[in-house]
Write a protein that binds this DNA or RNA. Structure first.
Lengths: 203, 203
DNA sequence: CAGGATACATACATTCGCGTTTGTTTGCTA
DNA sequence: TAGCAAACAAACGCGAATGTATGTATCCTG
């Protein structure tokens, strides 16, 4: 059995990505073998190497499946001109946490990113891409905050760049801590009060 | 050459730990081989297996070298009764970041903890210990904040537990983000304004 | 000062995983 | 409706890492 139709091939590709998520999660990226992933997907390593060059390529594709939509949403929120942008940013942060709490795939993928992978050797480039994304986030948030400051929506004594770093690191910290022990949180309920407390610093 | 004196043996143990730090840092814990570590320490794997049961045991010893002193300091700061405890906590946070910025060993070890290890299989127990430490931190900080709230040093509308989580995750986030790209920070200089901004939420 | 225990070095066996190559079937296209 | 190429499966060869077992020289204690 080989040479499936294009649609079937795309389906096995998705199956492999699903399997990679689950195997990376329980075994860690480094200790996960492509053989395990193939078995979990119901195929052989041949199929994996057909769809992906190696483990790093598979990793990138897996993380891209959830990160690209999120980044689009962020760009959309930050880009809008009218209205209270800080409020929009705050809402985005709350929604981001709520989405994390309710979306199992996002939980798995970000748990892998924060707690199940070592960014060395093969994943070095992935890491540099993540850093580049972070820099764009920071720059856009800083612009937003500086703009709002001129409109009197951010206290004059607050440095826009430091505020952007604070919000960014606060989100990172919550993601990290929540994904390390999700049972310690009720994130869906605590998302709003948590972000509310963080944003108290900006008022 | 074998059977060194007790002091010499202790010295090779430290050499192995130093080597583990450096190899874990550049290769990641999972991909680091005990052979590499042994070579970096100028010994053979025999010496490593003599002093440590396996890689996980070595990892625990390495991380204990820097984490235990820090935990003592935290207990000391939180334990004191007289004076403004919130101010003491804020100072502790600033000092913690400054220490991270200036102490190369702390940088290496925490970079490994945050970005170079996967907490699965052998390191599962280490992870559970880290979670237990986190829970103690949180509980003690919550007690401190609740106590200070009765003294009017924390606004009544701020939930002590949420405030504790916020401070904790803020510190985690800064550690994480700084250690991912230290060149993007000037942490020694920014430590105070960063923490100052975070604590604005509590005033 | 003799003997066991210490502090390693060396050697061995085994397992695992990766990348590549080759084989095979079948969808697709000209 | 040939025939090429897609979509895998199966097999190969290789290195690398682990845990253990054994060897050995020296410290240290009674």
């Amino acid at each position: 059995m080989a040479r499936r139709t294009k649609a079937e091939a795309e389906q096995t590709r998705e199956q492999i990505l699903d399997a990679a998520e689950s195997v990376f999660l329980e075994r860690g990226v480094a200790r996960a073998s492509l053989e395990e992933i193939a078995q979990a997907a119901g195929v052989t390593r041949g199929a994996v190497y057909w769809h992906f060059r190696n483990k790093a390529d598979l990793f990138d594709a897996m993380y891209g499946r959830v990160h690209l939509p999120m980044q689009d949403l962020f760009d959309q929120v930050v880009g809008l001109e009218e209205g209270n942008a800080i409020e929009a940013l705050r809402t985005f942060c709350v929604q981001s946490l709520r989405c994390l709490a309710s979306n199992a795939r996002r939980q798995r993928v970000y748990t892998i990113l924060f707690h199940r992978c070592e960014f060395v050797d093969g994943l070095q480039e992935s890491n540099e891409r993540l850093i580049a994304i972070r820099d764009r986030w920071l720059a856009r948030m800083e612009d937003l905050l500086r703009r709002e400051q001129t409109r009197g929506r951010l206290p004059a004594e607050v440095c826009p760049r430091l505020a952007a770093i604070t919000i960014h690191t606060a989100m990172i910290g919550i993601y990290f801590d929540y994904l390390r022990s999700p049972h310690a949180y009720e994130l869906d309920a605590q998302a709003f009060p948590l972000i509310d407390l963080v944003f108290r610093a900006l008022s």
